[in-house]
Computed example of a mutant assay.
Amino acid sequence: MSKEITIVGGGLGGLVAAIACAEAGTRVTLHEAHATLGGRARASGAPYIAHEGAHVFYADGPHWTWLTSRGLTGPLGRPKGRDAIRMGFLYGGRMRRLPPAGFVRLMMLGRGREAPVDQDFFTWVSRTHGAETAQVAANAISVVTLDADTGRLSAAFVWELLRRVFAPSPPAVRWVIGGWQAVIGRLAARARELGVRMELKSRITELPGGPTIVATELSSARALLGDTSLSWESGNCAMLDLAVHPDPRDRFICWDLDSGGFHESYSMQDPTVAPPGETLFQLDMPVRQDEHRRDARARLEALADQAVPGWRERTTWQRSAFAKGRAGALDLPGHTWRDRPAIDRGDDVYLVGDMVAAPGMRGEISINSAVKAAAGAVRAASKATRSAL
């Protein structure tokens, strides 16, 4: 048996790290400050299962392979019948079935291009496709960046996201029945099967000694480790979860190409997340620099007016929130994911989360960083055990 590994944080990354460490035969104790596991993968309780953050996976990376190889994703859902084609693009104040031609040309003709790291996305696209297409493309991918000025980010960073989401090929998006909360449940069950000890309502205020994985938001890790360098660019958005009595005009999915907002159904592909006879939606809107929250909320409601006509009269449940600085890593020109806060912090301390030095987008970064951190922590634990013998 090797020395015990301590994990601080019971969200997606912390649970993946716990499983990876336990699979290597190491004793693991996980501490979660809240009464429940999940972090930003948590969802509201039934009958309206709405998520605090993302609720889909993309099946084109190592994170998905790691989950599926262990049977942790569970059954998948998909929209059926007319729901599947109820897509829309809000452009010029009007809902359209297709995006502007300039954006289509960019994605079709430019898919083989490589974008520069050291130039901003807006300038790079404007040079060949014009400023209007550059702004439309930036707003289209704000669903991932949750940033009102995505055009200011590294061209290489934004272009990679665009190609993954809008590539002219079958989309890699996957909807898990029960959402990410169901995956959290399976991760927790797997961790317990492997002997991971979980301490809920256990807030760690100083490092316990021995190999430690800190799987918290970057701001919390900064305070725990006393390391002011632990910071990175992130988004700022307004969010609205909305349950309504259904109407044939309701959109399954909608991109707001004017403002960067996004709308998607939770329940058209997964009826288990809403009561029978109701439809559950998630909407978000990036908050502009120096914009008052009420103005961002007004723009968000304007998107709802287009995507869910007459929603105010049909609403059965709703909740709203804002997420600032906790929406995943954004890379500015001249930076890549390798420049983010390193996973290995030295002294057998490892960092996990969606804003550290690992590839992917949002939750994918958490999973990929967790697997790497676990490998480092296991090596450190084994080395400590050998030294003690």
Rank of each mutant, 00 (worst) to 15 (best):
T212E: 05
T73V: 15
A373T: 03
A384C: 00
H335M: 13
A33S: 15
P211T: 09
R190H: 03
R326D: 15
A50L: 01
L76N: 00
L162G: 14
A381S: 06
A380S: 15
A380F: 04
M285W: 10
I204R: 15
P170R: 12
G179R: 01
R312I: 10
M285E: 07
H129R: 11
A296L: 11
V143W: 04
Q181T: 10
A296R: 03
F89P: 00
A59V: 01
S259Y: 09
A134L: 12
R111Y: 14
H31F: 14
G14N: 11
A22R: 08
R186C: 11
P211R: 05
G81F: 03
A321H: 13
Y91A: 13
T73P: 13
T212Q: 10
D331I: 11
R297P: 03
T128F: 09
R78L: 11
E291M: 01
V125K: 07
P211Y: 01
S69V: 03
S267Q: 06
G277W: 07
H245Q: 07
V287Y: 02
I85K: 09
A381L: 10
T73A: 03
L303M: 13
V196R: 12
R70M: 06
R293A: 13
S369H: 14
V378A: 00
A137M: 12
L303A: 01
R386Y: 06
T316L: 02
P286W: 04
P170A: 12
L351V: 02
F122E: 15
W317Q: 15
K80Y: 07
P171H: 12
D270T: 12
D247I: 10
D348C: 12
F57R: 02
F322M: 12
R379T: 10
L330M: 06
K3D: 14
Q318G: 08
A41D: 00
G13P: 05
L146Q: 11
D344M: 08
I49N: 06
L90N: 05
